[in-house]
């Protein structure tokens, strides 16, 4: 297969030389995100389509009642990422790329392990019935920084999602259809936002939200997951050029500021979609 196209040396040097002069190829500032558009509810409750520049990710949340593992009183939250071959010629159906594994692991750490979703609230009858929340993430267009886009899509979809109401009387469990009783939102403790950085010139130069071109040229990456309370949820520095400690502190500061901006945008999109429903 042709796969990803190799980058020419002149393209590489062009990107790096421009950065040395403080210019990014698409004209953004080093700490500037691409334009973010969040569309909620296109496919009903719990669907979010997020466009970060030209990178496009669709997240869809669904719920079903399942039996929990041995006497547990907690529900499940599952992530399923699919890098559709639609997004880039480098993705092949049925073959897991390293990037895909990285993205699904990071999402899992960012949203599930940071305890953003109250899994105890998903319990219906302890040890018998719990809600299993499934988040399907479809990458539709790959123009760089899939992770941040996927994280925003996943958390927006989870915030938008409503599950059917349930009543328990003795042994009798009734799941009420959506038109009978108002469906219930998930209880979400905080909104983790993933911010990716790319490094050039052995860590000398840093950009936020790298494009596909920049991703191919960068010496290393650094990922910070942070929420509006300025709490760090996850950090990842998986290989690449070594980083100065001061750089890491600086990046974390930037990430905290960016996370606040992104959270505002998500909240804005949620209010807008709620108004439409009324």
């Amino acid at each position: 297969m042709s796969g990803e196209q190799f980058l020419s040396t002149s393209e590489r040097t062009f990107v790096v030389n421009a950065l040395r002069e403080g210019i990014r190829v698409d004209g953004r500032g080093a700490y500037e995100f691409r334009g973010l558009s969040i569309e909620l509810g296109g496919g009903g409750f719990g669907s979010a389509e997020v466009l970060l520049g030209k990178t496009r990710v669709l997240a869809n949340v669904s719920a079903e009642v399942v039996r929990p593992t041995a006497n547990s009183a907690e529900g499940f939250v599952l992530f399923n990422t699919s890098f559709s071959p639609m997004a880039s010629p480098a993705f092949e159906a049925g073959r897991l790329t390293e990037e895909e594994v990285l993205v699904s692991r990071m999402l899992e750490k960012a949203v599930r392990r940071s305890r953003a979703i109250d899994t105890e609230g998903l319990c219906i009858v302890a040890g018998e019935k719990v809600w299993s929340i499934r988040v399907d993430i479809h990458v539709l267009d790959h123009e760089g920084n899939i992770l941040d886009c996927a994280c925003i899509a996943a958390i927006s979809a989870l915030l938008h999602f409503r599950r059917p109401d349930v009543t328990v009387e003795g042994d009798q469990v009734t799941i009420h259809p959506m038109d009978e009783r108002n469906p219930i939102p998930l209880s979400i403790h905080h909104i983790p936002i993933c911010i990716s950085f790319g490094f050039f010139d052995k860590g000398e130069r840093v950009v936020v939200d790298p494009t596909h071109l920049e991703e191919q040229v960068q010496d290393g990456d650094f990922i910070v997951v942070v929420n509006t309370h300025r709490e760090l949820c996850t950090m990842s520095k998986a290989g690449g050029a070594g980083l100065d400690v001061a750089r890491i502190v600086q990046c974390t500061e930037v990430a905290a500021a960016k996370a606040a901006e992104v959270t505002e945008l998500i909240r804005g999109a949620l209010t807008k979609s709620n108004e439409i429903k009324k």
């Binding site: 296109g42 496919g43 030209k54 496009r56 071959p85 639609m86 997004a87 880039s88 010629p89 539709l140 267009d141 790959h142 123009e143």
Partner: peptide, 23 residues
């Protein structure tokens, strides 16, 4: 609607929609 694909289109009848891409 897509930038990487050679050709793409979204088609919808009411709320049923499909996004297609061609390479």
């Amino acid at each position: 609607p897509l930038s990487r694909a050679d050709g793409s289109a979204r088609f919808a009848y009411g709320k049923s929609a499909v996004l297609a891409a061609v390479y």
